[in-house]
Design a binder for these strands. Structure first.
Lengths: 201, 201
DNA sequence: TTAAAAACATACCGATAAGAATGTTTTTTG
DNA sequence: CAAAAAACATTCTTATCGGTATGTTTTTAA
């Protein structure tokens, strides 16, 4: 097997293990011995591929967290089929939440978890996490502006503000859900966000 | 000096130090040596008054975090003067955010930080944090229902859903703000939340 | 006034962390 | 095929953690 490929595979193995643990226990509570334990690798292997805990934190954010947010929340808003805007927004902000597994509901959003845990204290993390949000907002603004042109969104809607409001409510409720054992909070959010989105028309 | 009072004062000293550090660095990154460092006390003193790190975490949530949320966000919604509901909501969800110090903007909401960091993993924390949110929601529902009776809120508004939506957006934006160095995100939130609240009428 | 109890301080313990150093095996390349 | 380089494993170091045990001093109560 090609060495480059083997190396990448090992890195991905470690990155995936790290992501799972960061997601379940948080960044600070996860140790490097714990990360490698699940992989069958050794500490030497870890430090051969990554030079610090911060370093793998960056890799996890760049390769896994960013990708996750992009695929689930950002890409669908790019609207290549030129679908109606309001139903598309409902699809992303309602259907996606309904589709989460119980574990995903319990654990919240990986990006938001990191934002809240290390968003302020870790400089390099902060910038990467901010880029994720910025990109998300930017794509949503494009969609909303497109909706204005098509006459599907009121002209007096502030698209930047609306985008941040929707992102905030979404991330906020995924956080708050973490202290509940049932879907009550998500169900209520769904009702409110639906009515909010529809009022944009 | 009375011993009971002295004891309470020492406990408060430690609790305040712990709160500040939990707020700045998070619960998991804060150590007990660090907590006592600022107080001039010793480790023996700490373990005389508290029996574990988890124990002081509970005390901080119960005495400081809960109080903070209550005084700032919940109590004003109780509306003893029977003020108009919409302006009251704007006052709480807009004016309060405008009044935050730069540090408070950078560090986010102490309650939301804990919810996201240990909301799922620490059982006893989870219940206490959930109570804070439940109480907040309950008071806001009362206010909104009161607004319906007075004809200031549309009859078809789902008050529970609206309350959670407002709380989610508020906590969400305070989290997201942590990865920014400026007020852009908060300013946009303020525009959107104002328009949202006004649409409840 | 004296004993006991509360309020602390000091010293210590086992566990574990991040990471460096060094050894071994596998793969690649000349 | 040999040497070098990459991919690992093992061992070790230093630091710090949460928590305990054992002091000492101060306060309270008999």
């Amino acid at each position: 097997m090609n060495q480059k490929i083997k190396s990448k595979e090992t890195q991905n193995l470690i990155i995936n293990s790290a992501f799972e643990l960061f997601y379940k226990h948080g960044y600070n509570k996860t140790s490097i011995p714990e990360i490698i334990k699940g992989t069958g690798l050794s500490k030497g292997a870890f430090y051969h591929h990554f030079n610090s805990k911060k370093n793998i934190g960056e890799k996890v954010i760049d390769l896994t967290v960013r990708k996750r947010v992009y695929e689930r929340m950002v890409a669908p808003l790019k609207n290549p089929d030129d679908a109606p805007v309001i139903p598309l927004l409902c699809d992303v902000f309602i259907k996606r939440i309904e589709g989460y597994s119980d574990l995903e509901k319990d654990l919240g959003c990986p990006a938001n978890n990191l934002i809240n845990e290390v968003g302020y204290s870790e400089n390099s993390f902060r910038e990467m996490l901010r880029d994720i949000i910025d990109h998300w907002q930017e794509i949503m603004v494009n969609l909303l502006e497109q909706g204005k042109i098509k006459g599907e969104i009121r002209k007096n809607v502030d698209t930047s503000a609306t985008a941040i409001f929707l992102i905030s409510a979404f991330e906020g409720v995924r956080g708050i859900r973490k202290v509940y054992n049932n879907d009550k909070i998500l169900d209520e959010y769904l009702i409110a966000v639906k009515s909010y989105i529809e009022q944009l028309a």
